[in-house]
């Protein structure tokens, strides 16, 4: 039976053994990348910030001490700070809109109308999510995207488990209000943005030319 080393053991080894850092990297890459991607909505930025997160972790691994805070929480804090700086420095929230539609082109072939509706729904939700405070966005992404335990989410957020649960409740309530306001303010007949209509036309032209979308475009 293979017993996986804990993060704390690997961190101690990683201070002298590059290979141990490689194991930590493989273990935490999916969650960190997913978190950053969901916060930025952009593959290039997600890759850049993920790389910065792990290089920063490598540079400062000697200063990491567990003290009850999991290594994952430490990594997420680095990632969160980088994302916060990215938002502050660039004010590029709008770029999130474009790549939020990527699954439209990646999913298995289904009815184009249904795909477009799914993409529209996703876009509407993500627009609403981005109107939440950074702290609330962070909680939603951590809760929905990662496999972190309640204690780990609490450690990353710097709150007790009870406080984090209460924050999720308030966040869902706030999101519901935002969505209601968006639906009220949206003029009828303009629910689908131009990029989505263009993607839909592109999809339809592919169908007409006999192209298969099985492998993605």
């Amino acid at each position: 039976m293979i017993i996986e080393e804990t993060d704390d053991v690997l961190v101690r080894r990683a201070k002298v053994e590059p290979a141990a850092f490689g194991i930590l990297y493989e273990r935490h890459l999916p969650a960190i990348y997913s978190y950053i991607y969901r916060r930025t909505g952009n593959t290039a930025e997600a890759e850049d910030l993920t790389a910065k997160t792990f290089f920063s972790a490598l540079r400062h691994i000697d200063t990491y001490q567990s003290r009850g805070v999991p290594f994952s929480a430490w990594l997420f804090r680095i990632a969160h700070n980088l994302v916060a700086n990215w938002y502050r420095d660039n004010q590029r929230r709008r770029t999130v809109v474009l790549e939020a539609a990527e699954p439209l082109l990646d999913t298995a072939p289904e009815e184009p109308t249904r795909l477009a509706e799914q993409a529209e729904e996703r876009e509407k939700l993500m627009t609403a999510v981005r109107r939440l405070s950074g702290e609330r966005q962070k909680l939603l992404v951590l809760k929905f995207t990662s496999d972190l335990s309640n204690a780990e989410i609490g450690a990353i957020m710097g709150r007790s488990e009870g406080a984090v649960k209460a924050l999720l409740h308030r966040t869902l309530e706030a999101l519901r209000r935002i969505l209601t306001d968006m639906e009220r303010s949206q003029p009828a007949g303009q629910s689908r943005p131009a990029w989505m209509r263009a993607a839909f036309r592109f999809h339809m032209s592919g169908e007409q030319n006999g192209q298969s979308r099985q492998g993605g475009i």
Binding site: S34, R38, M126, V129, V141, T145
Partner: peptide
């Protein structure tokens, strides 16, 4: 849920 599903690099 689907909008915030995990994304793999």
């Amino acid at each position: 849920g689907p909008s915030l599903a995990p994304v793999r690099p």
